[in-house]
């Protein structure tokens, strides 16, 4: 029963990691670079919701979509300022630019909100209920459900709709996509903005469950990154699987190992994957164009 309870917890945590990982993967596939500012977008999502709901008094269900829009806008600005100008720069430069963006966003959040922690009123209820010996918290269950639903929706969008397919086509071969008449610029931006929305939703799901401060992006970003790498930086399914494996591993580490190593799990995962197949991770291979 203890294990089952831990698994449920790991699943709920893992589905959020998975959402963040999905953002990494989408951008990595389209832009060929890991966006280390992805965690900050989660923070933007959480803080936007906080401001809109707790400060400005918007009803939570109205505040959520607005917060997603705000985060998409921030995503667009990040794309415009730091991805677009560096499109033809080498992988390392672009990677470092994303780290710069993340430091920048984190410090802006710190300037606005200080280093204090915030708690956010629960959206789906935090009064636990018992099933047998299991204790279930509605918000956690909803988080898991929303995480899975979003992945399923995104999968559907990418695999079944014309626009979704064109985004995948762009990610796979930009030049061929242009030859199809696909607006590659718009497709890349669209992918970035969707990834930002996913990150923001992850942040908004975390906010009502956990305390957060300006640094939440760094914490959650690392977990999402590890989950994405674990999932192979492939499309949707891999990221979610990676997230859930990581979430469950973190919980089981406490049961079977020692809690001292819990927070090291994400790094151990990264370490192992980077040792086993480093080349694929740091930058997506660039095709050599024929003269």
């Amino acid at each position: 029963m203890q294990i089952l309870q831990q698994l449920i917890q790991g699943l709920s945590l893992g589905s959020i990691y998975g959402l963040v990982a999905l953002g990494y993967v989408l951008i990595y596939q389209a832009w060929g670079v890991l966006n280390f500012a992805q965690g900050e977008v989660c923070a933007i999502g959480a803080f936007s919701l906080l401001v809109l709901h707790a400060e400005l008094g918007m009803p939570v269900y109205a505040a959520m979509p607005v917060a997603v829009l705000v985060s998409m806008l921030v995503g667009y600005v990040i794309e415009f300022l730091s991805f677009r100008p560096l499109e033809n720069a080498n992988g390392t430069t672009r990677l470092i630019a994303t780290i710069g963006v993340s430091i920048c966003v984190r410090n802006i959040l710190r300037m606005i909100f200080g280093a204090d922690y915030f708690s956010f009123p629960t959206i789906f209820g935090d009064t636990p209920f018992q099933v047998g010996e299991l204790i279930l918290v509605p918000q956690n269950l909803w988080n898991t459900a929303i995480g899975f639903a979003l992945v399923a929706l995104l999968n559907l969008f990418l695999k079944k709709t014309r626009i979704g397919k064109s985004m995948r086509a762009t990610a796979q071969d930009k030049e061929a996509a242009r030859l199809m008449g696909i607006n590659v610029r718009a497709s890349l931006t669209g992918t970035f903005v969707i990834a930002s929305a996913l990150g923001a939703i992850a942040g908004m799901l975390i906010a009502p469950v956990y305390l957060f401060n300006f640094n939440i992006g760094a914490t959650i970003g690392t977990k999402g990154y590890a989950a994405a790498v674990l999932g192979g930086l492939d499309f949707a399914s891999g990221a979610m699987t990676g997230g859930i494996i990581l979430g469950i591993a973190e919980c089981l580490a406490v049961v079977f190992g020692s809690s001292e190593y819990q927070s090291a799990i994400a790094y151990i995962v990264l370490f192992l994957v980077l040792i086993l197949k480093p080349s694929e991770i740091m930058s997506k291979k660039k095709k050599v164009e024929k003269v």
Partner: peptide, 15 residues
């Protein structure tokens, strides 16, 4: 330059 991760049918649809 076909799209490697799209099905044959989706490749044609992109065309």
């Amino acid at each position: 330059h076909i799209f490697p991760e799209l099905t044959v049918e989706d490749n044609l649809e992109m065309g």
